[in-house]
């Protein structure tokens, strides 16, 4: 039992050490030359534009179902007109960032781990190094920058379509006046909520992509290893999204109060 625990602990410490080393190399790579601008643009397109459909659908239906469920509950207190306030606050502060994060973890985290993992097992990473290219600068930095900057953009889009989804349900099913809904949406939002909703996705995007890159670059064991790496990346980044969301929320509440 003890040797097993010993091996597990050593493995865990090694993973953390390598993850931290990758982050240091990534930050160094982002701040110095050579900088692969074309790859950065390509990744912004792949991660940003490529994730748009899934984020739009998720945001829309989340807002719609939220209106549906809360409308019934609010009805019991005669507060149906306040449905917009509830939707905007929920989407902007919590559901938008977290659900967008989870979608990105599934789509980008898995994609990055599979792509880099395949490159590792087919010696393409070694070939890159042999050709004089630092794989971190060429592969990791563009993805991290794209994840870091595109996650907030996608979250804002998700929030917006979520509120629109809620509006459709509120107007056509709950029979709430459109003007009342939008007034309620604006009333429910404070500048503090907007900050919270925009700061969190930066952290989530960074964590999702760095985990995907780390897991992908440490792939071993052929095609079976690539499959394992992909699963691990999705599981780890999904859990990380929830955990980071909690800690960042806690930190922001500590820094700015309850708003």
């Amino acid at each position: 039992m003890l040797p097993l625990l010993d091996a597990w602990l050593k493995g865990a410490v090694l993973e953390v050490q390598e993850y931290v080393r990758l982050q240091i190399a990534t930050i160094r790579g982002a701040l110095s030359r050579p900088f692969y601008f074309r790859d950065v643009v390509e990744q912004f397109e792949q991660i940003g534009i490529g994730s748009l459909t899934v984020v739009l659908l998720t945001g829309f239906f989340t807002g719609a179902v939220l209106a549906l469920q809360t409308g019934i509950t609010l009805d019991q207190f005669g507060a149906r007109p306040f449905v917009g306030r509830l939707i905007s606050a929920s989407m902007v502060k919590e559901l938008g960032p977290v659900l967008t994060g989870l979608m990105l973890a599934g789509r980008i985290g898995s994609g990055i781990a599979a792509e880099l993992g395949s490159m590792v097992v087919t010696d393409q990473i070694n070939a890159l190094r042999a050709l004089g290219t630092d794989p971190v600068r060429k592969l990791v930095v563009p993805r991290v920058l794209a994840g870091f900057f595109m996650a907030p953009v996608l979250t804002v889009i998700s929030d917006t379509v979520g509120i629109i989804g809620g509006w459709l349900i509120a107007v056509f099913q709950l029979r709430v006046a459109s003007s009342l809904y939008w007034t309620s949406v604006v009333d429910g939002l404070y500048i503090y909520d907007a900050w919270m909703g925009i700061i969190k996705p930066f952290c989530l995007g960074y964590v999702i992509v760095t985990i995907g890159c780390h897991v992908g670059l440490r792939t071993a064991g052929g095609t079976q290893g690539v499959g394992r790496a992909t699963t691990n990346a999705v599981v780890a980044s999904s859990v990380a999204v929830i955990a980071v969301d909690f800690f960042v929320t806690r930190l922001l509440i500590t820094l700015f109060g309850q708003g």
Partner: peptide
Amino acid sequence: ELELMKVRADVGMVFQEGALFD
């Protein structure tokens, strides 16, 4: 690694299975 890049400029390697970029 950074210093190795200069040495690798004069060395080419043909990997098993080619290792071409897909």
